[in-house]
């Protein structure tokens, strides 16, 4: 259940930026969460509902960009889509791959009032 730690991390960042902008309310928050980032979305939703209660994020619209996984084969240079970190290269079956996309875990933007 590390998702609660993730939610608390988001809350901390959002509150810090909202305070700097002297905002009274956060209307919307945009997040990048890659499919390989080890965040389980059901657990995340549950943690979110508990974690943002009575905070500036309570009631904010949450926009989540689920970034798909991509990798580059280190042996034959093929770029391909992956769903799991142990997926082999589709051209040469090598496991020596570099994940180029899908591990994102970040607060992209806020809309505040």
């Amino acid at each position: 259940m590390h998702e609660l730690s993730i939610v608390m991390g988001i809350l901390e960042i959002a509150q810090q930026y909202a305070k700097e902008a002297e905002a009274k309310k956060i209307d919307e928050i945009e997040l990048d969460i890659g499919v390989l980032s080890t965040v389980e979305m059901n657990a995340f939703d549950f943690a979110w509902n508990q974690g943002v209660k009575n905070t500036l994020l309570d009631g904010a619209v949450r926009k989540v960009n689920r970034i798909t996984g991509k990798a580059l084969c280190m042996d034959c240079d093929t770029a391909f889509d992956i769903a799991n970190v142990f997926d082999p290269c589709p051209s040469c079956a090598s496991h020596l791959i570099a994940i180029t996309q899908g591990k994102e875990l970040k607060v992209k933007s806020l809309i505040v009032t």
């Binding site: 991390g9 988001i10 970040k106 933007s109």
Partner: peptide, 16 residues
């Protein structure tokens, strides 16, 4: 409209 967009672009695990 009093609404402001803040570009945050901050990794959630940044503090850790």
């Amino acid at each position: 409209n009093d609404k402001k967009l803040i570009n945050v672009e901050r990794d959630i695990l940044h503090e850790n």
